[in-house]
Computed example of a mutant assay.
Amino acid sequence: MADMELVPVRTRILTDNDNIVDIIEKYAKGNVGPNDVISVAESVVAITQGRMTRPEDLKPGLLARVMCRFVPQKGSLSSAYGMQAAMNMEGEWRFFFAMVVGTLAKFVGKNGVFYELAGEQAALIDDVTGTMPPFDKHIVFGPLDPVGVAEQIKQRLGCFGATVADVNDLKRSRIVGTSSGLNPDLLAKILIDNPFGNASQKTPIVIIKNYAQAQAKALG
C-alpha cells in the first residue's frame, strides 16, 4: 500500500477575480489521482469569493470595543475591528448573548460555548495579518458554501474527495467543509501541523496523496 503524503501546491497570488476551482485545476490537476484528497485553505477560498473588508470601512461600536477585551490576544476577535466585523455578519445581540453564556459556562469548566452560540463567523473570521498578502490588511470572513466548493473540486478533478480547512500554526485544525464520503476528524488530524503556506510560500492548496487507503485503514 502506498504511503500517505502531503504535497503543497504552489500558485500565484490569488484574488477575488479568481475562481478557486479553476485555480486548483490549473495548478494541481497533473498531480492528483483517484485516491487523493485536495485540501484548500478556507481563507483563500473566502478571498476568491470577495468575502473581506478593510478595517477603515468599519466603525466599532461600544459593544465591540468592550467585548473584544474578553478575547485572548491571539484571537481574531481580540481587536474591536475584528469583533465588529463578525458582529455585523452574525448580529450584535447574538454575540452579546453568546459572550454572557460563554463566560458563565467557563465557571463550571465548559469551554467553547461562546463559539457554539455566536455563529460560524466567530470561529472563521481572520483579522488583519491573519491571511496572505496582499490581503493581510483586510479582515477576511469565512467562505460561503464550503461543502459545495469541495464537491465542485471533487467533480472537476476526479479525485477521491476535497476539503476546505481552517488550520493555523497553533495546532488548531478545523474542517470547514468536505465532499461526501470523507472523515472530518481524520482530515483534521492529518492537517494539524498546517502544511499550508498562505504568505510568501503561496501554497494554499495541499494534496493528500493516497488518502483513500489511509481512511480505509483508520476505519478498520
Rank of each mutant, 00 (worst) to 15 (best):
L6P: 01
N17V: 03
M83Y: 12
V32R: 04
T178Y: 07
K29N: 08
T131F: 09
G75Q: 14
F96S: 00
P55Q: 06
V44Y: 11
I13W: 15
K106M: 05
L124P: 01
A86D: 01
P55G: 06
L182G: 05
E90H: 02
I13Q: 13
S76Q: 11
V176K: 06
G197I: 04
S200H: 04
G82F: 09
I23L: 10
N31P: 00
V21D: 00
V113G: 03
P204I: 10
G177I: 05
R156H: 11
F97G: 00
G82W: 05
A41Y: 15
G130D: 04
T163S: 14
V108W: 01
H138R: 05
G158H: 03
A216Q: 10
Q155G: 13
G220C: 12
G158V: 02
C159V: 07
F135S: 04
Y81E: 11
K106L: 12
M52Q: 05
F107R: 06
M99K: 01
M87C: 03
L187N: 04
V40G: 07
R69K: 15
K137I: 07
Q121M: 01
N35Q: 13
N17D: 12
K189T: 06
T163I: 08
Q152P: 04
L117H: 01
R10I: 15
E90L: 00
F114G: 00
G30Y: 02
V7R: 12
E56H: 13
P55F: 07
E5M: 10
A64S: 13
Q152Y: 07
A28F: 10
L182D: 06
C159T: 10
E120C: 00
G119W: 04
G177D: 06
L187G: 01
V40R: 13
G158T: 03
S200P: 01
G102W: 02
V44N: 12
M52D: 02
M132L: 15
Q121V: 03
H138S: 14
K59F: 13
I190E: 06
R174D: 08
A80S: 14
A123W: 08
V21C: 10
M87Y: 03
L62S: 09
N17G: 10
M52L: 15
K209Q: 04
E116L: 03
F135Y: 14
G158K: 05
V40N: 10
T48M: 11
